[in-house]
Design a binder for these strands. Structure first.
Lengths: 117, 117
DNA sequence: TATTAATACATCAATACATGATGTATTAAA
DNA sequence: TTTAATACATCATGTATTGATGTATTAATA
């Protein structure tokens, strides 16, 4: 898994969990590498999740009761299929609402101001 | 200067400099507290810059040659009026372009996906 | 008039997310 | 056969922002 980042790392901060929650609410079961691939494709290669970020956060979200997973053996390889818990669905709704509001606010503030007098 | 934050602190990461650059490109000269006030008003109280973030970053941006300032004495109080340098205008253009692209990408990824088959 | 809020700056240790480096191992492709 | 892709993992490091704390002036309010 190799990559070059499109955006300054700081901009991505706080968006990782919402992104994962969003992906998992569309496709009810996904494993880490699948999420990585999906996000990469959907963003036209602009958002490349780092495995050093992705796998730890999936573990954290499981620990927080937001996700659950089941291990599936594919040949000799193991996949962990993650899915939203009931709590996860709630958290998803809240996080996505907050993110949406944030995007709109920043957009308004930075690009839509300075109305001529 | 007291405050309550609307967004999880992480979401704001990477947006502070673009916000400041944007504000300063509209109003050519502003002092720290004025930027604080303007951002607060423009965002309907949703983005409250912290003085622990604002003043250090203004110093950093000056050190980086992005901003310059002049001190103005108002009675016994001192104000530092900041303004964009030539380099600052370039940096502004780049940062705002990146941020805009980022906002669009996240929006597309998280809210506009899952087209029906 | 006394006290609180607002104005205006500052410093710095602590926080926390994400990164980058590094590792293991299987499977497919060149 | 060697490289790339698949699939997971750990952990020290970086760094932007925060929160706490500080000084001091000026305006408002009780």
């Amino acid at each position: 898994m190799y990559y070059c980042t499109m955006y300054s790392k700081e901009l991505l901060k706080g968006t990782l969990q919402p992104i994962i929650l969003s992906m998992l609410s569309e496709t009810n079961k996904m494993y880490g590498y699948e999420i990585f691939t999906k996000v990469k494709e959907r963003s036209d290669g602009k958002i490349i999740l780092k495995d050093g970020s992705l796998y730890p956060v999936l573990q954290k979200m499981s620990k927080d009761g937001v996700l659950q997973f089941e291990e599936v053996h594919i040949g000799k390889r193991v996949r962990k299929y993650y899915f939203l818990t009931a709590k996860g669905s709630e958290v998803k709704r809240d996080y996505l609402q907050e993110l949406k509001d944030f995007l709109e606010t920043i957009n308004e503030l930075v690009y839509k101001s300075a109305v001529s007098v």
